[in-house]
Design a protein around this nucleic acid. Structure first.
Length: 828
RNA sequence: GCUCUAGUGGUGGAAUCGGUAGACACGUUGGACUUAAAAUCCAAUCGGGUGAAUAACUCGGUGCCAGUUCAAGUCUGGCCUGGAGCACCA
């Protein structure tokens, strides 16, 4: 055995063996229980970054641990390979997006293999390949048939720089999630998925997801944004052309209805022209133009003073008979509720600000009886009792909500209503590098889905990427013109492609049956492997990918394609990889290239280090010294074996009645097995797992340095300790463990070994340190043997000379004995 | 503003049930080995105080203020600070 460990040479050699022996292939038929471990699949951007390394290492260790614990583990990988960067590369360097993507995948595949990840490469999926996107298109057609995919004209988010529309979820602070440029509003006809049909289920089923972090669940709940309230309708009394018009509003505060002093409609409100008097027309029109020109950022700014203009018309309040004016103001949002708001300045801070600016009246209808407010300086938004509200006076406002809405229901001017903030998912993209939306437009038959047997609708290759301002796909001469699947007449293809998040909303199901040419996947296989037992990825997908995937799962279940209704049972959101306290990024120039680490220290060091310093969910600060430390530790373990090779007997047996030193080591091994197993099982605390590797290593070295004579007993216990250490480390330092295993003469892989078990009686030290406290302060520590009775412990504590000295002349009030731990003597 | 999350040495972080605060490392300092260096090994390392002392002892200490308890990093109430998400959502 070599004196030093040479990662570069050994890792390469071992990789070749694993590949040859198919060590990590997953078979569908197995008697073992299944376990599905999954990392969020990467975008093939060119090279792995440290975030990838962290993500894949965490999942890999979980997969290997579960495999050693007797599970049939599915641990696949693939490529989220559609998307803009490939297209941008094509535009900038004249490269073909497919070629660019393929080259990146090839390089990153090499890197992933170098990391020693236990993937079943036979299940690799690549979303940009026709054999995959055929099924993305097929699923689109199923959703279309169910009415869950539809086209509508709407105000949508437009990113000029990316030349495409974006989903709501992809607009961050009014900016594009990808390129950070300001998003504009455009009115376009676009394809949507009806995710809002599932708003309630998506919200309710969050409760089922016990293995998800509270942060992710609340983020999703906030995004879905459920509000219970009422729709109340108000008749317009003086519409300019004498029409009978009604304005419905959504409110969560029907209890304040008697306090309405005006009503606001959004500038984009559909009937606004019918509600405007001729005298006000010009001003209203001007205001609407302005509102339209404003960017989301300007409009959403809470700093901005509220503005608006009166329409000149009025409504009547059916509860009071009072009339009140109509205004338009951009603090009312067209897309939420009905686009109209009843304004109660006394009890809503926004209405209060607006009323104050335009000198609109306010009317108090809720009072706190102990501390009444006239609402002159601020709106009163707390709970209270109704006043100035006719028959509802004296009622608690929480009760009044229901009673007042009920009155509207009884008199047909309102209803109970649950409102969600979630909007439908806009999936059209005016880009080339995505799955074409499989529909055609026929002059006679209108919108028609492509026939399933004609899938996939292939991306054309005769496209020109140099033309700016339109989707490259529209430059194809062959793509657009086609025939109608119904009448056979002339038709044109949809040139929009699907949001890449559609592709990634079902890839984890495809892994169950990745090579199926007849179906998107076999139902039984999907039901067998899913849901994913452990999903690992970045928090940045807390809403986007994770919400879309949940929607897909529910929709696919309703389509009868699967039997489960949540895709990911447990979710681990790993923290970021930082360098010098801030996120690694090219622009900051603080990146560390994984290749360099693999070259200089080997993949084992990278794996060990990235798990060692922080728990997985927390941010991790990369330090060169830390890498160095891990590399040293790997060599320390290697030397432990190589320097003491002569003492190792793989067919060891542990005799009874060990010497004290050997007994201590034996116990330390059992303590380590127990601790490491628990740490992995309990939230994957890999940082403490690695400290326990070090503790055990230290304990074994300790044994060697004291009275180690190389007797049969010494050798047997030492052998046991070393072999267990290597096994415990094998999910993390995968190459070194395998190499040592081979050096010890094994012909099979250590990665097919069973996880070690511990003996509960041995997983504790032979004696305990009894802590003796007086009034809760530590005063003495006594080494005692295990298993003494409470009285014996108490006796020993009271006999301690230090204790005697301290309690002399005082009265012992009480003595508390904690078995196996401490005695606390309370004195006065 | 609302929601979630965290706060422990010089640093990363440990600490099942409330029971020795600071495991394991990094860093630093000193030492051994060496002609020298690297590598390796050993020791010290929360702060204050008493002591000639690397002896012995003692007090304080887990963001702040209270409380519960024999005992609080851990439980309860109130605050402060950082991070994240949402945000004129009626």
């Amino acid at each position: 055995m070599e004196e030093r460990y040479f990662p570069q040479k050994n890792e390469k050699e071992i990789l070749e063996q694993w590949e040859k022996n198919n060590t990590f292939k997953t078979y569908n038929d197995s008697d073992k229980p299944k376990y599905y471990a999954l990392s969020m699949f990467p975008y093939p951007s060119g090279k792995l970054h440290m975030g990838h390394v962290r993500n894949y290492t965490i999942t890999d260790v979980i997969a290997r641990f579960k495999k050693m614990n007797g599970f049939n583990v599915l641990h696949p990988i693939g490529w989220d390979s559609f998307g803009l960067p490939a297209e941008n590369a094509a535009m900038q360097h004249g490269a073909n997006p497919a070629k660019w993507t393929d080259e990146n995948i090839a390089y990153m595949t090499k890197q992933l293999k170098m990391m020693g990840l236990s993937y079943d490469w036979d299940r690799e999926v690549t979303t940009c390949k026709p054999e995959y996107y055929k099924w993305t298109q097929w699923l689109f057609l199923q959703l279309y048939k169910k009415g869950l995919a539809y086209k509508k004209e709407a105000a949508v988010n437009w990113c000029e720089k990316c030349g495409t529309v974006l989903a709501n979820e992809q607009v961050i602070d009014g900016k594009c999630w990808r390129c950070d440029s300001v998003v504009e509003k455009k009115y376009l006809s676009q394809w949507f998925f009806k995710i809002t049909d599932y708003a309630e289920q998506l919200l309710k089923d969050l409760d089922k997801l016990e293995g998800w972090g509270e942060n992710v669940k609340t983020m999703q709940a906030n995004w879905i944004g459920k509000s219970e309230g009422a729709i109340l309708k108000f008749k317009v009394v003086d519409a300019p052309d004498g029409k009978d018009l009604e304005i419905p509003v959504f409110t969560t505060r029907p209890d304040t209805v008697h306090g309405i002093t005006y009503l606001v409609v959004a500038p984009e409100y559909k009937d606004i022209e019918l509600l405007t008097t001729p005298e006000n027309k010009e001003k209203v029109e001007e205001y609407r133009q302005n509102a339209r020109r404003m960017t989301e950022i300007e409009r959403l700014s809470t700093e901005r003073v509220k503005t608006g203009v009166p329409l000149g018309t009025h409504c009547i309040n059916p509860y009071t008979g009072e009339t009140f004016p109509l205004w338009t103001a951009d603090y009312a949002l067209a897309e939420y509720g009905t686009g109209a708001v009843m304004a109660v300045p006394a009890h809503d801070t926004r209405d209060f600000d607006f009323a104050k600016k335009y000198n609109l009246p306010l009317k108090v209808v809720i009072q706190n009886s102990e501390n009444p407010s006239d609402c002159k300086d601020a709106a009163y938004t707390e709970e209270g009792v109704l006043v100035n509200s006719n028959e509802f006076n004296g009622m608690k406002n929480t009760d009044a909500k229901k009673a007042i809405t009920q009155k509207a229901v009884d008199n047909s001017f309102g209803e109970f209503k649950t409102q969600y903030r979630l909007r439908d998912w806009l999936i059209s993209r005016q880009r080339y590098w995505g799955a074409p939306i499989p529909v055609v437009y026929c002059e006679k038959c209108g919108v028609q889905p492509v026939k399933e047997e004609d899938l996939p609708v292939l991306l054309p290759e005769d496209v020109d990427f140099s033309i700016v301002g339109k989707s490259p796909i529209t430059t194809s001469k062959t793509f657009k013109e086609t025939t109608c699947p119904v009448c056979g007449g002339k038709a044109v293809r949809e040139t929009d492609t699907m949001d890449t998040f559609v592709c990634s909303s079902w890839y984890y199901m495809r892994y169950a049956d990745a090579r199926n040419k007849e179906k998107c996947f076999d139902k039984d296989l999907a039901n067998k492997w899913l849901p994913v037992d452990q999903y690992v990825g970045g928090i940045e997908h807390a809403i986007l990918h994770l919400l879309y995937s949940r929607f897909f799962t529910k929709a696919l279940k309703d389509l009868g394609l699967i039997d489960f209704d949540e895709p990911f049972k447990n979710l681990l959101t790993q923290g970021m990889v930082l360098k010098d306290g801030s996120k690694m990024s090219k622009s900051k120039g603080n990146t560390v290239d994984p290749d360099e680490i693999f070259q200089n220290y080997g993949a084992d060091t990278a794996r060990l280090f990235i798990l060692s310093d922080s728990p997985p969910a927390r941010d991790f600060d990369w330090s060169d010294a830390g890498v160095e430390g891990c590399y040293k530790f790997i060599n320390r373990v290697w030397r432990l074996v190589s320097d003491n090779f002569k003492y190792i007997n793989v067919n060891y047996s542990i005799p009874e009645n060990l010497s004290k030193d050997n007994d201590t080591l034996l116990r330390n091994v059992h303590i380590a097995i127990k601790g490491i197993t628990n740490d992995i099982s309990n939230d994957f605390q890999f940082n403490t797992v690695i400290s326990k590797y070090r503790e055990l290593t230290n304990a074994i070295y300790d044994r060697l340095s004291k009275n180690f004579e190389g007797t049969e007993e010494d050798k047997n216990v030492f052998s046991f300790a070393v072999l267990m250490l290597i096994k415990l480390m094998s999910p993390v330092t995968v190459f070194m463990a395998e190499k040592i295993w081979q050096e010890l003469g094994y012909k099979t892989s250590i990665h097919d070994e069973k996880w070690p078990e511990w003996d509960e009686n041995l997983a504790k030290s032979a004696g305990i340190t009894l802590v003796v406290q007086i009034n809760g302060k530590v005063r003495d520590k006594i080494e005692v043997q295990n298993g003494l009775s409470q009285d014996e412990l108490k006796e020993m504590a009271l006999n301690s000379p230090k204790v005697k000295e301290q309690i002399a002349g005082k009265e012992v009030v009480k003595t508390i004995v904690v078995p196996q731990k401490l005695v606390n003597i309370v004195v006065k």
